[in-house]
Design a binder for these strands. Structure first.
Length: 841
RNA sequence: GGGCGUUUAGCUCAGUUGGCUAGAGCACUGCCCUUACAAGGCAGGGGUCGGCGGUUCGAGUCCGUCAACGCCCACCA
C-alpha cells in the first residue's frame, strides 16, 4: 500500500475537500433496514432559519455531532436528520422587512407578482397567498445558508433526511396530530381572554412570554362612595378606568369592610361599580383596594372569572381604544378624548382629566415594574377576549399534570439538574396550551365550521377533513358535502382562519422526521428516539410540547435522553443579543481558525455549562489539529507497509500501548455518559504526552532498522490508528485527511477503539511513565543550564525502588538516546534523578 | 418572593464515588532552528480553591449559612 504523505501538511481546504467526499460516498447515509436496537436516533433541533446565525447555532449542534459520530463508530446505525423551522412569525417578520411587504388577507392573489429586488418603502400590501410564496422563497434561501454552515462545520447529518416545519409532511403530521387531539378531547376551542400582541395582532402562549422591567407610575385615583366619600385606589393604568367592572380588597382588610356589598362610582365616567372581597387582593399593595378592569393584567382575568363580572372591553386587537363610545359609561363625553388612542397616550390624557376633575391625588409616583411582553414583541401585551384553540397540557387538570411530571422523571436528563426546570414549568402552568395564531405563514387549523341560517358559525361542531385530504388549507379547500359557493353563506360553511403556532408543529419533530404517517415501519425503527439535544431556553416550549404530544399520541416519552447544552455568552461573558451588538457569527471564525478549531471550542464546553466564546480555546484546537497532521507524518514516515502487531516487542512500546488502552476505556466511559468534553480531554491529554514524551523517546530507534526499529514502527502505527479514531468525533476533517494517507475508506465508518484491540500488545504503563519522568528531569537540567536539548550528559543516575529501576532499565536504550547520555547508573533508595551535563569543549 | 446554576492562577476553564504536594491552555519569564511540527518545542514563576461555620484521620470535593453573578419562574392593582 503506497502512502501519500504531504511534505508540509496543513489544514487549509480540508472542509471543502472532505464534505463533498462524505456526501458522494454516502458515508453518513441512514440505512433504515436496520432494526430498532441497531439504530441510534437523534431528534435534531430544527433551527429557525430566519433567525440570525450566531455561535449558539454552532455550539450545541457540534456537541451533538460528536455523539452521533461516536455512536456510529460504536456500531450503531445513526439516524441523524436535519430539519428547518421555517413556519411562523419569525419568518413573516423577516419577509416583511426583507421585501418591504405587508400581508393583507383581503387582497386577491396576484399571479404575476414579482418580489421587489430590495425592501420596498413604504411597504407594499400583498395577498396572503403572495405573502406565503415570499415566505417560501426566502426560507429556501435561508436554509441553504444554514446547510452550508452545517456542512462546513462537518455535521455528519444524512442530508437525504431533511424536513421543514412548513413542508407537506410536517403540515400533514401537524394537522393529523391536532385532529387526533380533537377527537380524543385533548384539543378544544374557547372564547376567553388571552394574552395578545397588538403589533402582530395575534394571541400568544404562556411559554412565549417574558417580563421586562418598564417604567410606570402609580396614579392615586378617587372613586366615589354613595355618601359622597372618596375611596382611593392606586393604579399604573388609569386609562382603563373606563373598562373597570369592580373594586376589590382583601376580605380581612379592616379598612374596607363597610364597602363590601356596596357600590362606588368611577371618576370621570360615573359608572356604578360593586366592591368585592377576594383573597388575591393584597392589603399592603398600594392602598389595599384595587380596580378590576377587563383586562389590565392576568389577575384581572382571575377576578373577572371568579367573581363572575361583566366584560367591558375598550382595547381593540390593534391595541387602540375603540372609537365607539362604550354604552356602559354614564358620563360618556370624556371618552371622546380617549377614542382611537394607544394605551400610553390614553394614560397621559386620562391623568390630565383626573387632575382637572380633582380625582387624582398628588403627582403620579414613578416606579419600575415588570411588564409582560411577547418574547418577540416590542409593545406590552394586552389581554383581549377572543376565540382560540387550546391543547390540554395539565395547566387545568391535575391528573394530566401528574402524568406529565412522571414523564419528566422518566426522561434521562443530561445534565441531570435540567430536569428541575421541566418540573417547575409543568407545576407552574396556569392554563392550557394556546396553539392558534391569527397569522398567515403556518400550518392551518384544519377545520371548517357550519354556518346556520343567520350566517353564524357553530364552533362546537366543526367540520373535520378526512385523513386522505391532509394537508389542507381550509381557506382554499372545500369541505366534502359542501360546494365552494357556500363559503361564507348562511347554511354554508366557513374556514377556521387561524394557523397553529410553530411549537404546535415542531413539538412533533420525532413524528415528522420519523415518517409516522407515511412509513409506520420506518417510524418503529427510530421512535422513541434515543436523544433530544437542545438548548435550555426551550425546555418549556419544544421539550415540554414534544412530551405532551408523544404522551397523548403514543403513550410514551418521545426520547430516552435529553441532552441540554449550555448557554453561549460573548467573549466578555455577556449574553449575546442583537440589541447589544455583541453577536458573534461563526463564519468569520471558521475562516480564521478553521472548522476544527471552532468544533474544538464547542466540545470543550461541558454539558449544560454556560460557555463564553473564547478565541484562545479555538487557537488551541487549531494547534491540536496541526499537531495531529505533523505527528502522523512522523508516525507513518518510516515504512510504507503495515507492521504486524507481533513485531511490537520493546517494553516501552508495549507500555505506551498499555497506557493508551486505559485512555480508550476512559474516553469510552465518558462518551457513554454523554460527556463528550471529558472524552475529548482524555484523548487530548493522552495524545500530547504521546507526542511530547513517547515520540521523543523512540525517535532514534525508529530511525534505525532491525527488530527494535520495527517494534517502534508498529507501535506508532497502532497508536496513531487509535488516536485518529479517538479524535474523529471532534476533529472529523483532519482525522479523515490523515486516515486517507494510509487507509482505505472513511475513518468515520471505522470501529471505535476498544480495549480488546490491545490484546497481546499491552505492557505495563509504568515503563513509559517512569522513563518520561527521568527525561523531564534531564530536560529541566538542560533548560536551567540554558543549553540545547541535544547537549550530551556526562552522567545520568536514577534512584528509586526496584520496580522503578526495572521500569527505566527496560527502556534504557531509548532513554540514553533521548537524554544524550552514555549510561544510566541505577541506585536503590529515595526516588531521585541526577543528570550532569558534559563540559562543553 | 421561589428555584436552578456558577464562584479554583491575570484570563478561559478542568478537577468523575472526599486522599491534591490543586492541574491545563492563554498571557508572562527563560532557553532551544532537535531531520513530525518555529502557526513549534522544552522549562519556569504565579492560587489562603468566594466568606464563615461544621462533619471527617483527611474537604476544592460532603453538610449548613452568607455573599456576588447568571438564568428560569412568580398575581406586574
Amino acid at each position: 500500500m503506497g502512502r501519500n504523505i504531504p511534505q508540509k501538511p496543513n489544514l487549509d481546504g480540508l472542509e471543502a475537500k472532505w464534505d463533498p467526499y462524505w456526501e458522494s460516498n454516502d458515508v453518513f447515509r441512514f440505512d433504515a433496514n436496520k432494526t430498532r436496537d441497531e439504530i441510534f436516533s437523534i431528534d435534531t433541533p430544527p433551527p429557525t432559519v430566519s433567525g440570525s446565525l450566531h455561535m449558539g447555532s454552532v455550539f450545541g449542534y457540534v456537541q451533538t455531532d460528536a455523539h452521533a459520530r461516536y455512536r456510529r463508530m460504536s456500531g450503531k446505525e445513526v439516524f441523524y436528520p436535519m430539519g428547518w423551522d421555517d413556519n411562523g412569525l419569525p419568518t413573516e417578520r423577516r419577509v416583511q422587512n426583507y421585501y418591504g411587504v405587508r400581508c393583507d388577507p383581503s387582497l386577491p392573489y396576484d399571479e404575476g407578482f414579482e418580489p421587489p429586488a430590495e425592501a420596498h418603502d413604504p411597504p407594499i400590501s400583498i395577498s396572503r397567498r403572495n405573502f406565503i410564496e415570499l415566505c417560501h422563497i426566502l426560507t429556501d434561501e435561508d436554509e441553504q445558508v444554514f446547510e452550508h454552515l452545517w456542512r462546513t462545520m462537518g455535521l455528519s447529518v444524512d442530508w437525504k433526511q431533511t424536513y421543514a416545519t412548513i413542508d407537506d409532511t410536517a403540515q400533514k403530521t401537524s394537522q393529523k396530530a391536532f385532529l387526533n387531539n380533537l377527537a380524543r378531547g385533548e384539543a378544544y376551542s374557547q372564547e376567553a381572554p388571552v394574552l395578545w400582541d397588538v403589533d402582530f395582532q395575534t394571541a400568544v402562549a404562556q411559554a412565549e412570554l417574558e417580563d421586562r422591567e418598564k417604567g410606570g407610575a402609580y396614579h392615586k385615583v378617587a372613586f366615589h362612595t354613595a355618601d359622597r366619600g372618596k375611596v382611593y385606589i392606586e393604579t399604573t393604568r388609569p386609562e382603563l378606568i373606563c373598562s373597570c367592572v369592580a373594586l376589590v380588597a382583601h376580605p380581612d382588610d379592616e379598612r374596607y369592610q363597610s364597602l363590601f356589598g356596596s357600590t362606588v362610582t368611577s371618576p370621570i365616567f360615573g359608572v356604578e361599580l360593586p366592591v368585592h372581597p377576594h383573597e388575591l387582593a393584597e392589603p399592603d399593595k398600594g392602598t389595599g383596594i384595587a380596580m378590576i378592569c377587563t383586562f389590565g393584567d392576568t389577575t384581572d382575568v382571575t377576578w373577572w372569572r371568579e367573581l363572575d363580572l361583566p366584560t367591558r372591553t375598550v382595547i381593540q386587537p390593534d391595541g387602540r381604544f375603540t372609537s365607539e363610545t362604550p354604552d356602559w359609561l354614564v358620563n360618556a363625553d370624556a371618552y371622546g378624548e380617549l377614542a382611537g388612542l394607544y394605551p400610553n397616550q390614553a394614560r397621559r390624557k386620562m391623568a390630565e382629566l383626573l387632575a382637572e376633575s380633582g380625582d387624582l391625588e398628588g403627582e403620579p409616583r414613578q416606579i419600575m415594574h415588570p411588564v409582560k411582553f411577547y418574547e418577540k414583541g416590542d409593545r406590552p401585551l394586552e389581554i383581549v377576549s377572543s376565540r382560540q384553540w387550546f391543547i390540554r397540557n395539565g395547566g387545568r387538570d391535575d391528573d394530566l399534570q401528574k402524568e406529565l411530571l412522571v414523564r419528566g422523571e422518566e426522561l434521562h436528563w443530561v445534565p441531570e439538574f435540567m430536569g428541575v426546570r421541566y418540573r417547575h414549568w409543568v407545576e407552574g402552568l396556569t392554563g392550557d396550551w394556546l396553539i392558534s395564531r391569527q397569522r398567515f405563514f403556518g400550518v392551518a387549523i384544519p377545520l371548517w365550521y357550519p354556518l346556520n341560517e343567520a350566517g353564524e358559525p357553530d364552533y362546537d361542531n366543526p367540520i373535520v377533513p378526512s385523513d386522505d385530504q391532509l394537508p389542507i388549507d381550509p381557506t382554499s379547500h372545500t369541505p366534502s358535502g359542501y360546494d365552494e359557493s357556500q363559503r361564507g353563506q348562511p347554511g354554508g360553511f366557513m374556514a377556521d382562519p387561524d394557523v397553529m403556532d410553530t411549537w404546535a408543529t415542531s413539538s412533533l419533530t420525532p413524528q415528522i422526521a420519523g415518517r409516522w404517517l407515511d412509513d409506520p415501519s420506518f417510524f418503529e425503527r427510530v421512535f422513541p428516539m434515543d436523544i433530544r439535544p437542545q438548548g435550555p431556553e426551550i425546555i418549556r416550549t419544544w421539550l415540554f410540547g414534544s412530551t405532551v404530544r408523544a404522551h397523548m399520541e403514543h403513550g410514551v416519552l418521545p426520547w430516552h435522553t435529553a441532552t441540554i447544552n449550555g448557554w453561549i455568552l460573548d467573549p466578555d461573558r455577556k449574553k449575546m443579543s442583537k440589541s447589544r451588538g455583541n453577536v458573534v457569527t461563526p463564519m468569520p471564525l471558521i475562516e480564521e481558525y478553521g472548522a476544527e478549531a471552532v468544533r474544538y471550542w464547542a466540545c470543550n464546553g461541558r454539558p449544560g455549562v454556560d460557555t463564553a466564546v473564547d478565541f484562545g480555546v479555538m487557537k488551541i484546537g487549531r494547534r491540536l489539529a496541526i499537531k495531529i497532521l505533523n505527528a502522523s507524518r512522523f508516525a507513518l514516515g518510516f515504512t510504507d507497509s503495515d507492521v504486524d502487531i507481533a513485531a511490537i516487542t520493546e517494553p516501552i512500546d508495549r507500555s505506551m500501548l498499555g497506557g493508551l488502552a486505559s485512555d480508550v476505556s476512559a474516553a469510552t466511559k465518558a462518551f457513554e455518559e454523554y460527556d463528550y468534553a471529558r472524552a475529548l480531554e482524555v484523548a487530548e491529554k493522552s495524545f500530547w504526552s504521546w507526542t511530547d514524551d513517547y515520540l521523543e523517546l523512540v525517535k532514534a530507534r525508529a530511525y534505525g532498522d532491525g527488530a527494535a526499529a520495527e517494534s517502534a514502527h508498529g507501535a506508532l502505527q497502532f497508536a496513531l490508528s487509535v488516536y485518529l479514531r479517538l479524535f474523529a468525533p471532534f476533529l472529523p476533517f483532519v482525522t479523515e485527511e490523515v486516515w486517507s494517507w494510509w487507509r482505505e475508506g472513511s475513518v468515520h465508518l471505522e470501529t471505535w477503539p476498544t480495549p480488546s484491540e490491545f490484546a497481546g500488545v499491552e505492557g505495563d504503563a509504568a515503563v513509559l511513565n517512569s522513563t518520561s519522568q527521568v527525561l523531564t528531569v534531564v530536560r529541566r537540567t538542560k533548560s536551567e543550564a540554558k543549553v540545547s536539548m541535544r547537549a550530551e550528559l556526562e552522567s545520568l543516575s536514577v534512584s528509586g525502588d526496584s520496580s522503578l529501576l526495572d521500569a527505566v532499565r527496560a527502556a534504557e536504550g531509548d532513554l540514553l538516546a533521548a537524554a544524550g547520555a552514555n549510561a544510566v547508573a541505577y541506585v536503590e533508595g529515595e526516588q531521585s534523578v541526577e543528570a550532569v551535563l558534559a563540559p562543553t569543549s
